[in-house]
Design a protein around this nucleic acid. Structure first.
Length: 327
DNA sequence: CATCAGGGCCCTG
DNA sequence: CAGGGCCCTGAT
């Protein structure tokens, strides 16, 4: 293992998220697989970030409360960072972590919903977030395809060790993502050695597309949802399931829910129809229910149910759920 | 031991 | 639009 790059330049800055804001439920998603680029503990998240070609070490600390939110962000870097760099970084973090998103309408509209209301109460101020760039999220999506959790974790770790940068800051050692060009220079065989299987081709071709700048993430943010979908589907190895996650997590379309995979179908069936896993409710019926009850907020609503479930799983064993999660 | 479906997607017919 | 193939792995 290469020695870590030590980051010793430090900047401290403060964020004032829109209230209500739930720090832990926003910055930690118990359903995400663990990865070597972040660590969470209550009130703190360490996260690496590759921004404008600079590997950064971030540390988010909760300094407020749900009604009076305040985050202290410490940024570690190798070199001195310019004022404009830090300003743009701040804007990017506000965007990726949805810190300024206004949840008022969502909270009010569903506070009386017998099922969603209590979940909103428990997780008031929780937002979806993606700490990753679009390119990075695409790599994660590819690694998730047709694999168990354990295997996704193993593939991601192998990719980090081979192509990422190990960073040391604040007493932590975490990997940082690579630039697409790095994978462009790798052969498909070299990728296959990391046990990513047929995904090697997708990882390489997506990296090539970003290296050529076929896709400009910042521009794509301002395009209509269906244009975004079409662009993403045009990438080799990226299909409707991956795109669904991206339109929600990366592009913040809170009503995007068009694809439900078999394991998710079984969990939704249990949550909304009390069915047994061997006889799940039809996907179309689930989609119709979500559309009717939550319309343009349906994925955000589902996010609340989903996270609620996985937070519970952290502290109590839910036998039926364990059987449905492919570890 | 073998077979199979899968935290999908591509390609072919 | 249906169905086979693909890296692997856990379930049966």
């Amino acid at each position: 293992m290469r020695p870590p790059a030590v980051l010793d330049i430090r900047h401290i800055t403060q964020f004032l998220p829109e209230a209500p804001f739930n720090f832990d439920a926003t910055l930690h998603k118990p359903d995400h697989f663990p990865a070597a680029d972040n660590i969470w503990q209550p009130g703190v998240r360490w996260q690496t970030m590759l921004w404008q070609n600079q590997p950064l070490g971030l540390k988010f600390e909760n300094q407020g409360a749900i009604a009076q939110p305040e985050i202290r962000l410490t940024v570690w870097a190798k070199d001195e960072l310019s004022r404009s760099f830090l300003q743009e970084l701040r804007a990017e973090i506000n965007y990726r972590y949805n810190l300024l998103a206004d949840l008022t309408e969502f909270n009010q509209r569903f506070s009386d919903d017998a099922q969603l209301g209590p979940a909103i109460n428990r997780w008031l101020g929780m937002r979806p977030f993606s700490c990753n760039s679009l390119y990075e999220y695409l790599i994660i999506a590819i690694v998730l395809q047709n694999a168990t959790i354990r295997r996704s974790v193993q593939m991601m770790q192998a990719l980090f060790e081979k192509y990422g940068t190990l960073l040391a800051y604040d007493g932590q050692e975490l990997y940082c993502f690579w630039l697409p060009e790095v994978i462009t220079r790798a052969t498909e065989e070299a990728l296959r050695e990391l046990k990513v299987g047929y995904r090697a081709k997708s990882i390489k071709r997506v990296s090539e597309a970003f290296s050529r700048e076929d896709i400009n993430e910042l521009e794509l943010r301002f395009k209509p949802k269906e244009d975004q979908r079409a662009v993403l589907l045009g990438l080799y190895g990226i299909g409707p399931a991956s795109v669904g996650y991206i339109l929600f997590d990366v592009f913040h379309h809170w009503g995007e829910l068009t694809h439900i995979s078999p394991w998710e179908q079984k969990i939704y069936s249990k949550l909304f129809f009390e069915t047994t896993p061997d006889e799940p409710v039809e996907v179309n019926e689930l989609l119709a229910l979500f559309e009717k009850r939550f319309s343009d907020y349906k994925m955000l609503a589902v996010h609340y149910f989903w996270e609620d479930l996985f937070w519970r799983r952290k502290y109590e064993k839910l036998e039926w759920l364990e059987k449905l999660i492919r570890l």
